[in-house]
Each structure stands twice: as structure tokens, then as C-alpha cells.
Design a binder for these strands. Sequence first.
DNA 1: AATCTAGCCAACCGCCGCTGT
DNA 2: AACAGCGGCGGTTGGCTAGAT
Length: 323
Amino acid sequence: MRKPTSSTATAEAAAPAAAAKSTPCCVKVGLKRGPWTPEEDELLANYIKKEGEGRWRTLPKKAGLLRCGKSCRLRWMNYLRPSVKRGQIAPDEEDLILRLHRLLGNRWSLIAGRIPGRTDNEIKNYWNTHLSKKLISQGIDPRTHKPLNPQSSDQPKPSSSKANHLQESLKEPIKTASSGLEETTSGSAHPVISNKENEYFQNNSNAHLDDQYHTDHFIASRGYTSLLNYDGSFGMDQRGNQRLGNGELAEDINSGTEDVFSFLNSLINEEAFQQHQIFNEPNVNSAPASSDPLFPIAATAFGLATVWESTLTPSALDQNESK
DNA sequence: AATCTAGCCAACCGCCGCTGT
DNA sequence: AACAGCGGCGGTTGGCTAGAT
């Protein structure tokens, strides 16, 4: 159990000594904690509107808040930011969370980065309160996305159609935006996996979808598509890292694709890209239209993606090796 | 009506990696 | 190379609320 009073008291007692050496933002002398008031929200929002995000350590003082910088950052990121979407998680968002979690594990910020308007905290809470329980009730281990009882994996699947849908959903490879998009039943556009990729899974005996490593590796090796956000924009975490899978995977990705993605990220204005239609149309197997106002950006992205597709994907590498 | 219980979620904590010195 | 500061992340907590008893 958490011990707020004692830990706070300890921190406060230790604060003067700590402050003499450094000024960590979590020194709690005289700082307010707990729920934010509307007045505090207004102060914070107004300040950030004027001065912008960042410099969290000094922000509270300048904004006239008796909060630590971390608390301000959290409040802004999870609640006050205009882009934060409120309200229930939609079924297609839930589906995406499940798929991303299967690939990424508890990398909430990475998952949130691919679901516009949702925060890592919100997704984490939703997972812990809804999805993990849902998976358990379906006999699926929420950590591994595999059957809870391995011996029962040969048994018939749960009889309800909902359960079947969930099981099937978890087996599908995550849809990517490499070569196109498809309409979901709910009407929103999801990135799709290409025929080539399906072919790869079918032809490569090591790439069976139940195998977390191979699924991860496949997606990771196709770095550029896995880094496409749900809305079609290119996504990395805020440090510019690609935190997919375990460290080994991250190395795999970083060794081959980071430059490409840094370049793409630098090319693409996210806001403009979100409004851009290239990744929001049902079929974008063709190159972007030159009449499009964002043609230069789209064409560069498309070009790089095409080069990547034809030279560095597992199937392309196999083909090149066999030549 | 009062009490108990469970669920939800905003907020906190400790740790880590990056960056600047 | 070592250190300190900062921002960000994931795990966890505890207050609030709705429903059950």
C-alpha cells in the first residue's frame, strides 16, 4: 500500500538537504498535491497557451502554481491538452489497443502514440480495468496474449461469437499502412497489411502468427510501416526511438531503419499529414496524385516506402539472396 | 437509510535514458 | 568520463462513485 503521509513527511524532512545539493522537482515543501482545481487548470492552460509546453521545472513558478513540474506536465498531457479526446473508447480503438498490445506489450506511450487523442494513462487504465479482465474471461493471458492454459489450446474455442471475434482478432497480424488502408466495419480507416506480407506469413514457416517473436520481428523488420500511426502520420516516441519489442528487436530496427524514419519524420509536418488524404483513402496502392498540395512530401514518403518494400523486407531480402 | 464492496481513473512515485556541462 | 538535471515512462495508489446488501 502507498503511504502518502509518511512518504511526504520523509520527503519534506529530507527536502532541505536535497535542495542544498540540487533542486529536484519532486521536493514537496509547500507544494500542493491531489486533484486539480478549475482555477489551477486555467492558470496552467493559459500559461502554456502563451509560452508553450516544456521547461516544466520552472513552469509552475512562472504560471503562479504551487505544483511541481511533473504534476503540471501530467495534468497538461493527460487532461488539458486540446488534442486529448474525451469519452468512451470506441470498438475500433479497443481493437487497435489489443493488437498493439500484443505487439508492444505494456508500452503505453507507444500504443497511445498510434491512437490519436488518447493518452498513455487512459489506455493503461482502460487496459487494466477492462481489457485485461476481458482477455482473462476469454481464457487469454493478457500479458502474452496466449491461452491461459496451454493444454487447452487444442480445445475448441469459446462458443460465444464475441469470444470468437476476440480470439480471431488477436491472431490477425496488425494492420499497417505500408501499402494501403481498408475500411473497418465501423467505417474508420485502418492501415492494412499487404498481400505481399500475407504471402510472407504463408510461405515462411517461421512466421506463424502465434509466435510472438516472429510476429514482432516481422513488424519490426518492416519498421516504416509499424511506425505509421493510426491516423497515417509517422510516429516515433518523443525521443525519436523505436521501442518495439525487446531490446534485441529495438537493435534490429535501429540498425537498419532509424535514419530513414528520422528523415521521414523530419519531412512530414504531422498536422498537415493528418489532414492529408494519402493514408486516409481506402486504396492507396498507387502513387500520390501530383495535384495534391502535399505531393512532394507524400511522394517522398511513398518513394522511400517503396524502396524499402522492394529491397529490405524479409521477402525482398529472400528474393535478393536467391538471385 | 446506512454500510459495504468493487470499479474507475486521476494523480503520484521511482526509475531510466538523454543531454549538457 | 563523470555527474547532474530534466523529461518521460510504467507501475501503483487512493479518492470518488455507483451498485449491492
